[in-house]
Design a protein around this nucleic acid. Sequence first.
DNA 1: CTGAAAGCGCTTACAG
DNA 2: CTGAAAGCGCTTACAG
Lengths: 353, 353
Amino acid sequence: MKANQNEQPNGVKEIARRAKVSIATVDRVIHNRSGVSAKTRTRIEKIIQELNYQPNIIASRLASRKVLNFAILIPSVSAETAFWAAPLAGIQQAEDEIRQMGIKVDRYFFDLNSKASFVKQTKQILKSKIDGILLAPSFIEESIAFTDALKEKNIPYVFINSDIPNRESLCYIGPDLFHSGYLSAHVINYCIQPRDKILVVNVSHEIENHHHLLRKEEGFRSYFKDNEKRIVKIDIRQTNDRSVEKKVAEALEETPNIKAIFVTNSRVANVAHYLENKGKKGMLLVGYDFLPENIAYLQKSVIDFLICQKPQEQGYRGIMALYQHLVMAAPVEKVSFMPIDIITRENHAYYKN
Amino acid sequence: MKANQNEQPNGVKEIARRAKVSIATVDRVIHNRSGVSAKTRTRIEKIIQELNYQPNIIASRLASRKVLNFAILIPSVSAETAFWAAPLAGIQQAEDEIRQMGIKVDRYFFDLNSKASFVKQTKQILKSKIDGILLAPSFIEESIAFTDALKEKNIPYVFINSDIPNRESLCYIGPDLFHSGYLSAHVINYCIQPRDKILVVNVSHEIENHHHLLRKEEGFRSYFKDNEKRIVKIDIRQTNDRSVEKKVAEALEETPNIKAIFVTNSRVANVAHYLENKGKKGMLLVGYDFLPENIAYLQKSVIDFLICQKPQEQGYRGIMALYQHLVMAAPVEKVSFMPIDIITRENHAYYKN
DNA sequence: CTGAAAGCGCTTACAG
DNA sequence: CTGAAAGCGCTTACAG
C-alpha cells in the first residue's frame, strides 16, 4: 500500500509535523507524561485542540501490550444466593467482549453470611495488582474501609446492586429499591379491592443490616400511606421452609381478609411453597427476582408477579463502566438505575435477565 | 521493546514458521483466497487447527483500512411514526461504538404510507456499494423482491420490528406479536371482573396489510378463547382524533359494561384523549409503545399500562448483528425476540427504551 | 503459486 | 527535554 495516500489526516504524525517535534513527544503530551518543556507542551496541546484529535483506541491497544486487570468482588453463588449467578454471567459476557482489548477479570467471592470472608477478600485484592474493581458493597462499614484503601491507591471502583452514596465511586449500577417497592404496591393495588388487606413479608437472617429490604418496604408503604391499616407486616429471620410456613400461617389466621402477599426479596418461593401446599387459591403473590424456583411458581400461577432488575445487565454494565473509564477515557454516568421489570407467567420466557 | 519476548505465541507468524511458508500465504488460507496449492493449503489448515488460532480482530481492522458500509431502511419519523425515533437512536449508538472499527452506516428512510417510497429507496440501495443492511420489511411483497436482489449480490440483511419468516435473513430482531397480545390479555384479566367486557381497538390506515396488528389481536383473543363474548372489537381506519372519538363513543354506548380498552398499537393516545375529555374514570386502558404522548397519559393515569418492546435495542442489536457477522465472523442467533415489558406510571421513569 | 517488504496509528525502550 | 527506531499482529500491493 502506498504511503501518504489515504493516511489518517489527524493522527499523531500530523500533530508532530505541525508542532515540529517527534511523535514520541506528542505521545508524552497526549498521555500527560512528564519530560516535556512547558512551551512545547502548550504548542502541542493547541494543535491537538485545533485538529480535534481523537486517538485511535484500536491502534493504541495493539501497540501497548499492557494488560489491564479488573477485579470483581461479589457474593458467591449458593442455593440461598442464586441471584448472583446472573451478575456473574453478565461479567463473563463483558469479559468475552473486551478480552481482545487486553482486559482480564479476576474473580473474588465472599460469603454473604460472613463479614470476615468479605474482609479477607478485600485484603487479597489490595495485595494484587489491579486497575479497577467492581464490587457489591453488602457490608457497609467494611466496604467503606476497603474503598478508602482503593482511593489511596487511585484505583477506581464501581458499586453494583446496592449503593453507598457519597463514596466517590466511579458509578453505581443497580436498582432504585424504594421505587421498586412503590411499583409493587401499584401493581397489587390494581388487582385487589379497597377493603382487602396486604401482608408484607421480609425473609432474611439479618434484617437489621439489610437496608435494601427495608428500603423496598418503605417504598411499598409510601404508596399506601393514606391507608396504612391495610398493611400487615412480618419479619422472618429463620429462612427455612418450616419457619416461613408457620409465620405466614399465623399471620393469615390473625388477620382475615388478606388478599395479597408482598415478599420483599427472592424468598417469595418459600411463601409460594406454603400456599401451594395448603391449596390456598386466590391469594395474589408478588415477590422478587428471576430465579428458576420462582419462575416455576410463576408458571403454576402460584406467584403472580415477579419484580426483576436485570441482574445480568448489572454485571455487564459494571465491567463496561470500568472499561469506558480506563480504556476509552470516556465519561461514565454516576448513577445508572436498572429498569423495574414486571414479570408474569406470560412474558417471563422473553425476559433476558 | 524487545522482540520475541512476549510475542503472541499463536499468530500468523508462528503458523508461517511451522508451515515453512510466508505469512502472506498463511493470510491467503485464513481468508480463503485463491492462489495457494492444495497441498500447502491443507498443511496450513492443519496447523491452524492445532494451534486453535484466533485472529486478532483489532490488528486485522487496523491493517486492512477497508471501510464497511452498512445501510438501514426504516420508516421516516413523523408525528404518526414517532416510534421509529427509538430504533434510529439505537442504530446511532451502535454506529458510535463500532465506528473505530471502520464501519459506516448509510441511512435510508421511506414513508410508511407509501409503498412507492419504499421501492424507490430499495433501488437506490441496490445501486450503492453496501456490505450489509438492516431493514423494516413493512411491505411484504416489496421486501421479498428486495431481499431476492440482495441474495443475488450476497449481501446479508437483518429484519427488524416485524419478520418475514423463511426469507434467509441473517436474523430477525423484534417482538413476538402474538405473545404481546396474549400478555396484554393476562394483565387486563387481573384488573377487571369476570363479568366485565373488553373493547379491542385497531387504529390504522390499512388494517388489511398490517399483519402485525392482527397478530396482536389474535394473541389477545386466544387468551380469552373460552369467553369470546367478552370481547368487542372495532377497526378505525381514519386515524384523526375526531374519528377515533366517534367510533369509541359508539362502541361504548352499544355495549354497556365495557371496563377495559385494549388498543393494539401506539395510537392508544387517541383513545386516552377521548376518555380524558369525557371525564370517563375507572376505564382500564392498555396500549403500546413508549412515546412521549403515551407517557404523558400514563402519568395522568388515563393510560394504565403500556406494552413496550425495547425499540432502541432493536436498532442497536440489528446493527451489531451485522457487525458480528461481517467483522467478527461470529455466528448470529436466527431469531431474537425482545422482552415484553409492562410499563406503568410507577416504572416508566426507569425504562430504557 | 509464493514471498519480501511496507504499512495501519500508536507505544515503548533506549540513547543522547 | 527530545527523537530515531522497532514493534504490536495483521493486510496489501508488488514482483517473481
